[in-house]
Simulated assay, not measured.
Amino acid sequence: MSIAAPQLSWAPDAPLPALLISPLSHLGLMQVTGEQNRSFLHGQITADVNALDANRWCWGAHCDPKGKMLSAFRLFAIADSMMLLMPKELLSSDLPEFRKYAVFSKAELDDVSAQWTILGITGTGAADWLHGQFPQFNREQPLCQLEQGVILNDGERFLLILPTQAAAERVQEMPLYHHSAWQALEILAGYPGLDAAHQGQFVPQMCNLQALDGISFTKGCYMGQETVARMKYRGGNKRALYILKGHCSANVTPASTLELAMEEGFRPQGTIVEAVQNGDQLLLSAVLPNDTPADARFRIADDPQSLLALQPLPYTLENA
Score class of each variant (00 low, 15 high):
residue 3 I to N: 10
residue 3 I to C: 12
residue 7 Q to G: 12
residue 16 L to S: 06
residue 25 S to Q: 13
residue 28 G to A: 02
residue 29 L to N: 06
residue 30 M to K: 01
residue 36 Q to I: 10
residue 38 R to G: 08
residue 42 H to R: 14
residue 48 D to M: 12
residue 55 N to A: 14
residue 61 A to W: 03
residue 63 C to A: 06
residue 63 C to S: 08
residue 71 S to V: 02
residue 72 A to S: 15
residue 72 A to H: 07
residue 78 I to S: 08
residue 85 L to T: 01
residue 88 K to D: 12
residue 89 E to M: 07
residue 91 L to I: 11
residue 102 A to P: 07
residue 106 K to H: 09
residue 106 K to R: 13
residue 112 V to M: 06
residue 113 S to A: 13
residue 113 S to K: 11
residue 120 G to L: 06
residue 122 T to I: 05
residue 130 L to Q: 05
residue 133 Q to C: 12
residue 137 F to Q: 00
residue 138 N to M: 05
residue 138 N to E: 15
residue 143 L to A: 11
residue 144 C to P: 01
residue 149 G to W: 06
residue 152 L to E: 02
residue 152 L to V: 05
residue 154 D to T: 07
residue 168 A to P: 04
residue 168 A to C: 06
residue 176 L to K: 11
residue 176 L to F: 12
residue 177 Y to E: 04
residue 177 Y to M: 03
residue 178 H to I: 09
residue 179 H to I: 05
residue 186 E to G: 12
residue 187 I to N: 08
residue 188 L to P: 05
residue 194 L to K: 02
residue 199 Q to R: 15
residue 210 Q to K: 01
residue 213 D to C: 12
residue 218 T to Y: 02
residue 221 C to Q: 11
residue 224 G to D: 08
residue 227 T to A: 13
residue 228 V to E: 00
residue 229 A to I: 00
residue 229 A to V: 00
residue 234 R to L: 04
residue 243 I to S: 02
residue 244 L to P: 03
residue 253 T to P: 07
residue 258 L to T: 06
residue 265 G to Q: 08
residue 267 R to E: 15
residue 278 N to C: 09
residue 282 L to E: 03
residue 285 S to A: 10
residue 285 S to W: 01
residue 304 P to K: 08
residue 309 A to W: 02
